[in-house]
Simulated assay, not measured.
Amino acid sequence: MPRITPFLWFDDQAQEAVNFYLSIFDDSRILTQTRYGEVGPGPEGSIMTIEFELQGQTFVALNGGPHFTFNESVSFVVNCETAEEVDHYWEKLSEGGEKSHCGWLKDKFGVSWQVVPTLLQSLISDANQTKAQMVIAAMLQMQKLDVVALQTAYDDA
Rank of each mutant, 00 (worst) to 15 (best):
T58H: 09
D27R: 10
S100Y: 09
L145T: 01
Q151T: 14
Y89E: 01
A17I: 03
V77F: 12
H101I: 14
L120V: 06
Q55I: 07
S28T: 02
S46I: 06
E84V: 03
S73F: 08
Q15K: 14
V116L: 13
L145E: 00
I4M: 07
K99A: 11
Q129F: 10
F25K: 02
G37F: 04
C102A: 13
M48S: 10
T34P: 03
T130P: 00
F52D: 02
D146G: 09
K131N: 10
V39A: 13
H67E: 12
S122N: 14
Y36E: 00
M134Q: 15
D126R: 05
F20H: 09
T130G: 14
K92P: 01
Q133A: 15
Q143P: 01
A14G: 03
W9G: 02
W104T: 08
K144Q: 08
S23T: 01
G103H: 04
D126K: 04
F7I: 08
F68H: 11
V78D: 02
L22W: 00
T118Q: 14
I24V: 11
Q33E: 15
K106Q: 12
W9F: 11
Q121E: 14
V148Q: 15
R3D: 14
N63S: 01
V78T: 04
E51Y: 05
Q33G: 02
P43H: 08
D12G: 09
S125L: 08
Q114K: 10
M134G: 13
V86S: 00
C80E: 01
A137N: 15
K92C: 07
V147C: 08
V77L: 15
V148W: 09
G40W: 06
G37T: 01
E38S: 12
R35I: 14
D146I: 11
N128T: 12
I4D: 01
V18F: 00
A127Y: 02
T34G: 05
G65R: 06
A153I: 07
P43N: 10
W104A: 08
F25D: 02
K99L: 10
T82H: 07
P66M: 00
G40V: 07
L8G: 04
I124C: 06
T130L: 13
M48E: 07
Q143R: 12
F25I: 03
E16C: 00
G45V: 05
A153K: 06
P41Q: 02
P41R: 04
Q114H: 12
E81L: 07
R35W: 05
M139Y: 04
M1F: 05
I47E: 03
C102L: 11
E38F: 05
G45N: 06
P43M: 08
C80H: 02
V116D: 09
N63K: 01
P6F: 08
E95Q: 13
G103F: 03
V77E: 11
V135C: 04
W113G: 05
G96Q: 03
G45M: 07
E91F: 01
W113I: 04
P43E: 14
N63Q: 01
R29D: 13
E95F: 01
G40M: 06
T32E: 12
P2L: 15
L120W: 08
P6Y: 08
N79W: 12
E84R: 03
L150N: 07
D12M: 04
E98C: 12
